[in-house]
Write a protein that binds this DNA or RNA. Structure first.
Length: 909
RNA sequence: GGGGUUAUAGCUCAGUUGGUCAGAGCGUUACGUUGACAUCGUAAAGGUCGAUGGUUCGAGCCCAUUUAACCCCACCA
């Protein structure tokens, strides 16, 4: 690749122009596609499919980050790496959107009919389904778009059907009347997992039901008086002494004067309320169970869209029952008379008013209680008895529990293991049918004649048994039924494809902890059931994005961050980095524009450091870092530190500590590389010694290249761009090789020497700052180094000129007298003196040195105490005792030197 | 009711298996444009590591109790 002339490099980092260009280059180069090598273990991730209704929000950005970091890291490591992208049809969400769009045209679903409606949804999908996908590209996701899937495409639909039939044939899918959660707003059943409980203010209404046999009034507390028309019993606890005389009696339901029995059931809690519970089997999950136990009739009083039932519904129901289609499991519908057609809320008011009027309302007390709401529309959920399809969970959950317990599936962080197990061990059957049109239609066919149900892989038109016409089940499947198959359906299953054989099971599944039950858990048991293996080895969880105050981001509170806006302003790299740096797995991320700006500044820092490097490498052709004898101390130091950081980052990535790796890298680049190494290297780069200059160029080039590689998974765009400018760069960074630490660069001894020198430089700066000496005013630095460091210090004069504003450096031997009238500091490596003449205030000097002395003495006390402790000496590891002794010795020397200096100054006075 | 998380500098958080005076960023204060970078640099101030007790030679880290905040799950009228 032709290296760009440095002067063409913009002075300021401008992400906007380059990101699109680079993404296009990657995609067109085929870099995102895995290189499948037989026998080599691939690294595979499937992307949690965003909804086609979706607009990119910052949650998506967070969702993609860990995946892209891991994918890019493994690609550079040389693993066959595949990241499968795709989108989800999102049955309810999409259908609602299209219904809304129709409403604007004055149309309803029914007006169009199923077929035309579905055409409209597909049209809608064509327009908006691509939007999220193009938005994802702006984040820099390096997934293999040639393998993009959609949960409703042909292959995946086949997978869904295959799974459904498999489970049905194994008797793991069944159809039946059950108490389910019904959303009157979305007009469909939803699963347990889709209910969110919210605390709401409500009332406790105390109603009076007269007992037929005794004429007394039985006080009954309820939170839902509107269900009373559907009461078919009241329950009392068999042990309850208060009501023993009522065993076998009946009450008369007010308003409709219906006689219903008093039943004895454990469900009635003697300690709660009056100990009497009204039983509405058709509209309350507990009552449903009580009804089953006592064989009570079920009376339905609500329509499926949240109104009170009337004559029409009752008639239909009666006809159905008469026709024999309805079973005993189906509730009988009541004509609610004057309440018919009211919403449930209107009916509540009306019924309470009527009960009050006839004196059957004893009192009302306020209470707060948990109310189930729909996770899509947040409307109150109505428990209804309904005929639905279910997945039998117990047999599927067992192996899904097992794989976590035996370590085949590992959660990161591991606390989510408990959450997962708790759910999996207590899960109830999964209601999978939805009363919608958009989705995978349930492959069940009913014979018009014999009524038999046929569940088939291929559509049928006539009954295989009697040859009469069949009609298909109207319902579709829960969206999560198809996403549960994602790890293998996207690879071609149920066909036996090459991809499936090579890339299944996946390596990692990364998603937010909020969809563990919806998605992750269901993928685990589906993978185990259909494929026989757990679909992934590691479940890497992330949290939610929150605002700067830690609040959830939402449209209503207007605290959201639009990733597209942010990318436009700061660049995708800055957004990416701010979403991962310092974030521990599974914890929430706080985001603010300020935070993103910080990392845009970081990108700018790297940009300029690279610009500096390139300016100093004009005409330079890298031949490799030269032998140790040609390298300056600072070169050796940075090479050693670079080795350290390579090991550290690699280790963190291997253990999925992505936030930690990013933080360490940030620190290394900014402090070690920019603040120190570049500043030190200026000495060699601007010096006369050509071989030293060359060594610095080689080191600079080597370390900078390595830095760009280490940073690439996090900030892919800027690193790719800068890499292209480097002399000696070949091909693209995205497919370059991950750096390795080289043992020949472990210059331990030299690194320590450099650290000692740096400590002196800091001390000198410190002195000057305290003296308020401007940088432009240079001063001589007088050093009295420890004997073993003398040589290193002498070779390092240049660093003091440049970094400590020295005009000259003089060295003293240990026995030489200290200079007068100078500011001084004592470090472990050397004592230093800056002769500042009249600027020096001796009293202040003494005060400051006393402070240092105090610190040293504290340290001595600490060390002495430790080493005097027999328990410590007996039990602490020998190496620790040695280091403690060494430290103590150093502190003593330091204290001695400081004391001596203080004495000198006192004499001076 | 069950389970989980968090509590460390003014703010946001690090602190890996208990062992080098407890760290960073932002903010604050002071100084500063030394030819990569003001989207910058140098330095300073600032913490009895929520509380109590325990284990240990040694605890921010382990155990118990406790306080506070947040989250998830659960059919309680």
């Amino acid at each position: 690749m032709e290296n760009m002339n440095t002067f063409e490099m913009a002075k300021v980092y401008a992400p906007k122009e380059m990101e699109e260009r680079i993404y296009k280059m990657w995609e067109e180069s085929g870099a995102f596609k895995p290189k499948m090598v037989e026998g080599k273990k691939p690294f595979t991730i499937v992307m949690p499919p965003p909804n086609i209704t979706g607009q990119l929000h910052v949650g998506h950005a967070l969702d993609e980050m860990p995946q892209d970091v891991l994918i890019r890291y493994h690609r550079m490591k040389g693993d066959p790496t595949l990241w499968v992208p795709g989108t989800d049809h999102a049955a309810i969400a999409t259908e609602v959107k299209v219904v809304d769009a129709l409403k604007a045209e004055g149309l309803t679903k029914k007006d169009l009919g199923r077929e035309k409606f579905l055409e409209r949804v597909w049209d809608w999908k064509k327009v908006y389904g691509g939007r999220i996908v193009s938005q994802l590209r702006k984040l820099g996701v390096s997934c293999d778009w040639s393998r993009e899937r959609f949960t409703m495409d042909e292959g995946l639909s086949k997978a869904v059907r295959e799974t459904f039939v498999n489970l049905y044939e194994k008797n793991l899918i069944y159809q039946g009347w059950r108490m389910i959660h019904w959303c009157p707003c979305c007009k469909t059943s939803i699963s347990d997992a889709e209910v969110e409980y919210e605390e709401q203010n409500g009332n406790f209404w105390h109603l009076l039901y007269p007992v037929k046999e005794t004429g007394e009034m039985l006080e009954i507390a309820t939170t839902r008086p509107e269900t009373m028309l559907g009461d078919t019993a009241v329950a009392i606890n068999p042990e309850d002494e208060r009501y023993k005389h009522l065993h076998g009696c009946h009450v008369v339901l007010p308003l409709i004067d219906k006689e219903i029995p008093i039943v004895l059931d454990e469900h009635a809690d003697m300690t709660k309320g009056t100990g009497v519970v009204k039983i509405t089997p058709a509209h309350d999950p507990n009552d449903y169970e009580v009804g089953k136990r006592h064989d009570l009739p079920m009376v339905r009083v609500f329509t499926y869209d949240g109104h009170m039932t009337g004559a029409e519904e009752a008639k239909e129901n009666a006809e159905l029952i008469a026709s024999g289609r309805a079973t005993a499991d189906e509730p009988v519908v009541l004509d609610c008379g004057k309440y018919a057609g009211m919403t449930t809320m209107e009916a509540r008011k009306a019924i309470v008013a009527d009960l009050t009027e006839i004196g059957r309302l004893k009192k009302v007390e306020p209470l707060t209680h948990e109310v189930g709401t729909c996770y899509r529309c947040h409307q109150t959920i109505e428990p209804m008895v309904s005929k639905q399809w279910f997945v039998k969970m117990a047999p599927l959950a067992k192996p899904a529990v097992e794989v976590v317990k035996n370590g085949e599936l590992r959660f990161i962080p591991d606390r989510f293991e408990k959450i997962y197990l708790n759910w999996m061990e207590n899960t109830r059957d999964w209601c999978i049918s939805r009363q919608l049109w958009w989705g995978h239609r349930i492959p069940a066919f009913y014979c018009e004649d014999c009524g038999k149900v046929h569940v088939t892989r291929e559509d049928i038109t006539v009954c295989p048994d009697c040859g009469k016409p069949v009609y298909q089940d109207e319902d579709v499947l829960d969206t999560w039924f198809s996403s549960a198959l994602w790890p293998f359906s996207t690879l071609g299953w149920p066909e036996k494809t090459e991809d499936l054989a090579y890339f299944y099971p996946n390596s990692v599944l990364s998603c937010g902890y909020d969809i563990i039950f919806f998605w992750l858990a269901r993928m685990v048991f589906s993978g185990l059931e259909q494929m026989g293996t757990c679909p992934f080895e590691v479940a890497l969880m992330h949290g939610l994005v929150r605002d700067a105050q830690g609040k959830k981001m939402s449209k209503s509170s207007g605290n959201g961050i639009d990733p597209l806006e942010v990318i436009d302003e700061y660049g995708a790299d800055a957004l990416r980095f701010s979403l991962v740096i310092g974030v521990a797995p599974g914890s929430d991320v706080r985001m603010s524009h300020g935070k993103i700006e910080t990392y845009r500044n970081f990108a700018n820092k790297i940009w300029n450091a690279s610009r500096f490097a390139l300016m100093n490498m004009q005409g330079f052709t890298p031949k490799g870092v030269p032998s140790a004898d040609k390298l300056a101390l600072s070169d050796k130091w940075i090479l050693k530190r670079f080795n350290d950081i390579v090991r550290e980052i690699t280790q963190h990535l291997e253990s999925y500590d992505l936030g930690m790796a990013a933080a360490n890298l940030y620190d290394f680049i900014w402090s070690y590389f920019c603040d120190w190494y570049i500043e030190m290297a200026k000495h060699e780069l601007n010096g006369e010694d050509e071989s030293a200059k060359n060594a610095a160029q080689e080191t600079l080039n080597y370390v900078l290249t390595g830095i760009l590689k280490l940073l690439h998974p996090y900030m892919p765009f800027i690193t790719e761009e800068l890499y292209s400018y480097l002399p000696g760069s070949e091909g693209m960074l995205i497919t370059s090789q991950w750096p390795e630490a080289k043992s020949e660069y472990d210059f331990d001894e030299e690194a320590k020497q450099m650290d000692a020198i740096m400590e002196v430089i800091r001390a000198a700066r410190n002195l000057r700052a305290e003296m308020k000496v401007s940088v432009s005013k240079k001063a001589t630095l007088i050093l009295k180094p420890a004997s073993e460091l003398t040589e290193a210090f002498k070779k390092s004069e240049g660093y003091f000129f440049r970094l400590a504003a020295a005009s000259g450096v003089e060295f003293l031997k240990a026995e030489d007298p200290n200079p007068e009238k100078s500011a001084s500091a004592v470090t472990n490596g050397a004592s230093l003196f800056i002769p500042l003449g009249e600027l020096v205030d001796v009293d202040k000097e003494i005060a400051r040195l006393n402070k240092d002395l105090q610190n040293a003495e504290n340290e001595i006390r600490r060390g002495e105490g430790k080493l005097a402790n027999e328990g410590f000496l007996a039990k602490a590891p020998a190496s620790l005792i040695e280091t403690e002794k060494g430290k103590l010795e150093k502190s003593r020397q330091l204290a001695d030197s400081i004391r001596a200096r203080i004495e000198e100054l006192k004499e001076l006075k």
